[in-house]
Computed example of a mutant assay.
Amino acid sequence: MLSYPHLTSILQALRPPLTEAVVTSTLAPRLVETWLNDYARTAGNYDIVETRADGFSYLFDISAERLIAAWGLSKGKDASPRAIIATRMKGHPLTNMVGGKRYHRGHAVPHTMGGRTDINLVPQLGVINSGRFQELERLAVATPGSLYFTYWRYPDARTQRPSGVEQGCLIAGSAPYIADLRN
Results as ranks from 00 to 15, higher is better:
residue 140 A to H: 00
residue 74 S to G: 02
residue 118 D to Y: 14
residue 50 E to G: 08
residue 53 A to Y: 14
residue 5 P to R: 06
residue 126 G to S: 13
residue 32 V to W: 04
residue 159 T to E: 01
residue 93 P to N: 07
residue 89 M to W: 01
residue 118 D to R: 10
residue 63 S to N: 13
residue 73 L to R: 03
residue 70 A to P: 06
residue 151 Y to M: 10
residue 159 T to I: 00
residue 32 V to F: 01
residue 42 T to V: 07
residue 40 A to K: 14
residue 39 Y to F: 13
residue 159 T to S: 10
residue 58 Y to T: 10
residue 39 Y to S: 02
residue 162 P to K: 02
residue 81 P to K: 09
residue 135 E to T: 12
residue 60 F to Q: 03
residue 133 F to L: 11
residue 16 P to K: 08
residue 109 V to Q: 04
residue 176 P to K: 13
residue 49 V to Y: 03
residue 132 R to Y: 02
residue 31 L to G: 03
residue 43 A to R: 06
residue 66 R to T: 04
residue 149 F to E: 05
residue 72 G to H: 04
residue 43 A to W: 04
residue 81 P to R: 11
residue 77 K to I: 03
residue 127 V to G: 05
residue 10 I to H: 09
residue 20 E to S: 14
residue 59 L to P: 01
residue 36 L to F: 05
residue 168 G to T: 09
residue 142 A to L: 04
residue 5 P to M: 08
residue 78 D to C: 15
residue 152 W to C: 11
residue 104 H to W: 04
residue 70 A to H: 08
residue 51 T to P: 03
residue 137 E to F: 02
residue 146 S to Q: 01
residue 54 D to H: 15
residue 49 V to Q: 13
residue 100 G to T: 11
residue 8 T to P: 00
residue 175 A to M: 10
residue 172 A to K: 10
residue 41 R to K: 15
residue 112 T to G: 14
residue 170 L to T: 08
residue 136 L to W: 09
residue 83 A to F: 07
residue 154 Y to S: 03
residue 82 R to N: 06
residue 152 W to I: 07
residue 60 F to V: 06
residue 166 E to S: 14
residue 169 C to F: 00
residue 99 G to F: 02
residue 100 G to N: 15
residue 52 R to S: 15
residue 150 T to Q: 11
residue 106 G to H: 10
residue 106 G to K: 09
residue 20 E to Q: 15
residue 133 F to R: 04
residue 77 K to Q: 10
residue 124 Q to P: 00
residue 133 F to P: 00
residue 30 R to P: 02
residue 177 Y to T: 08
